[in-house]
Design a protein around this nucleic acid. Structure first.
Lengths: 213, 213, 213, 213
DNA sequence: GATGAATGAGATTTCATTCAT
DNA sequence: GATGAATGAAATCTCATTCAT
């Protein structure tokens, strides 16, 4: 059984690698397939057979790698959030000291992740309700971690007088949710490339926290 | 949304316009029940019997009032969007001429609707995928109407030099999506009452479009 | 849903009628079919489809009448034990005062029931383990009732000096279990007809409790 | 039965003859595990994985030692009956010439075996139906051998005028089935120890065949 | 108009068994 | 000899929907 928390301690690999291929190729194929088809049809609208077919295997194989359809979803969402939080923290590490740069960095990481992993993002927004209580708690906790990062960056900027938003937490939430929502409207064949979306959202986010240029 | 029994304190709008009571009380009860249970379990995770039970009737009755489970969902989402658009347009009618007031008005309408009809909002965000193509087209079109209202208000403000957002469409989308997302985090027992959320979001929205006070 | 405990209060019907046809013919057919096929293949060796096919319907229909395969088994065994206890008590009512006659009466009822309802008897002996704890408690309790009837008759005979078994409870258990076991070896085409088996078992039972002729 | 680690206090028989340790310890462990878990859940209710897990190995290992789940069950029941018949015959060999002593001896062996190997006994009573026809024939034949031993002992006693049962075969069956049934009600924490049960059943059996003291 | 029975398709999950390593 | 992955069949149960009454 694949367990997501099997982190690779001491591994020097740069975690910027956004795909975390499992050691077991079949399990990885199943996860990829599940993301694809669940994002389109929803958790309950997707049958185990659908997932297996999309991964090129049989339904019984899925149960060889995952305890249940539920567990597959939980691992899916958990990994996605791990990647999001890791990318955001890493961006912050590289961002230097300027509050504006720091906000730009986490907006970049957050928006880019939701553009690149559009389907995981939509799953994360709509299928939390399909999780068992235990997994839900874990996932919500990691979601909160990400939200706290944004709050911290905004509050730091305010404390240092660089941002003057009167309600830093609300501004942070405003920004986070808008940045998450890119996954709901972005189309690869649309007018804006991801780089440009990121740039524009960075500036709007700075406006939203009252950064005075 | 349908049969929204809460009046909205502090809003000058007559709330009678926001309730669209069906002529047939059973149909209305079914819609209310469907919103309640589908918001929790999703469209595919909700059985026709679940809906009927929550409405206090039988599954067969549901088929007297709606052609199918699909149709019930389509009517549900369509009504919700109608109410959202109507409320927003009405707010704009009463808003006067000042671009800041106009933006404040539509943020008020949009946020308040998503706070009051939290469950419909979540359905609208997650279950578009469960619609048949025909209903999907209709609902997406109405969604676009709402989005256009925000774009128009922002662009007007920019044209008149009151807002200076360099990318009005993106700022409008930033604002709309953030305002929609209140439904995903608002809890009635949370620290902020709806009126206060609306006030704060109005100001952040004005910041996001670079309104210079 | 069929519920076994729906007794018909005030019904003047003679309960000697050993078949209790349900008001719902489909449910009755399913019970009959379940007895037949489960007695041959066991509870877990019998599929819901097997039962439905033997009853001439579909598996889905079974779930219209019974909540689960478990519930069907529970109702089955419960009804069988009700019939056994009722028949035994009625035999006792008609038996008069003589301890020997009373023992003969309950041996007659018990043996005859296990010969006539051979398959139910075998189910009752082997599939108690397949019951959920709640149903198991009920069924075991009714089994005990039957056992207590035998104990009481034997003890009464001993108290009145007609039987002289030194260990009345053990003799009663010896007799009951031997009488129950007729279902395990009886074949309708065997050398003895039920009447003759009953007669011989009555006499052996009287020997086992030391009835002195 | 296999690996019956309890020695039998008060029995003069050397208990080494009752354990048939398999040459292969894994096979023995699998048989022991199968008895344990099948007695609780039945043959069809027990999966090969259940058995393997209870034996501390894997399902694949089971197929190294047994051709199939069926074969395992057949071997199980066959060994159990071998031990029962052997113990009974050995008891008879040691019993001397007196018919009462001989009946006491076989009741002792039979009852004691069904108390000690309670689970095998229950399997033997309920899972004959799960055997393939070939194995069933073998097992039923051995069952008959045991039954014939009881019939012979009773008939001999009658022929010599020590017992006066009018129907020796029926009395023998009455006794055998009652003695077998101890496995269905005996609980180790019950009021009677096996020695006492054996003593009382010996006397009741003598009564059932009309042994006049 | 309302209801309980019916139904075929399909859902998730488990099974006994095999096979490559 | 031992093991984990694989697999097709089949298990229990639920579903949206229809229809006679």
């Amino acid at each position: 059984m694949v367990n997501a928390e099997k982190s690779r301690p001491g591994s020097g690999l740069p975690s910027t690698t956004l795909t975390l291929p499992s050691d077991e190729p079949t399990a990885a194929a199943l996860i990829t397939a599940a993301v694809e088809v669940m994002a389109t049809q929803g958790y309950h609208g997707t049958s185990v057979r659908d997932i297996a077919a999309a991964a090129g295997t049989s339904a019984a194989i899925l149960y060889h790698h995952f305890g249940s359809k539920q567990e597959l979803l939980a691992i899916l969402l958990d990994r996605g959030l791990d990647m999001l939080v890791m990318a955001t923290e890493q961006a912050l590490d590289l961002a230097g000291d300027d509050p504006a740069d720091r906000l730009r960095a986490i907006v970049d990481a957050h928006v880019r992740m939701h553009l690149e992993a559009q389907r995981e993002s939509m799953l994360g927004n709509s299928e939390l309700r399909s999780l068992d209580p235990g997994s839900l708690r874990v996932v919500v906790a990691k979601r909160d971690v990400q939200q706290r990062i944004f709050e911290r960056v905004v509050r730091d900027g305010v404390r240092r007088g660089v941002f003057t938003a009167p309600h830093p937490e609300d501004a942070a939430r405003f920004v986070t949710t808008a940045c998450t929502a890119v996954a709901t409207w972005y189309r690869p064949d649309g007018p804006l490339v991801p780089d440009e979306i990121v740039r524009r959202y960075q500036e709007i986010a700075l406006d939203a926290v009252r950064y005075h240029r």
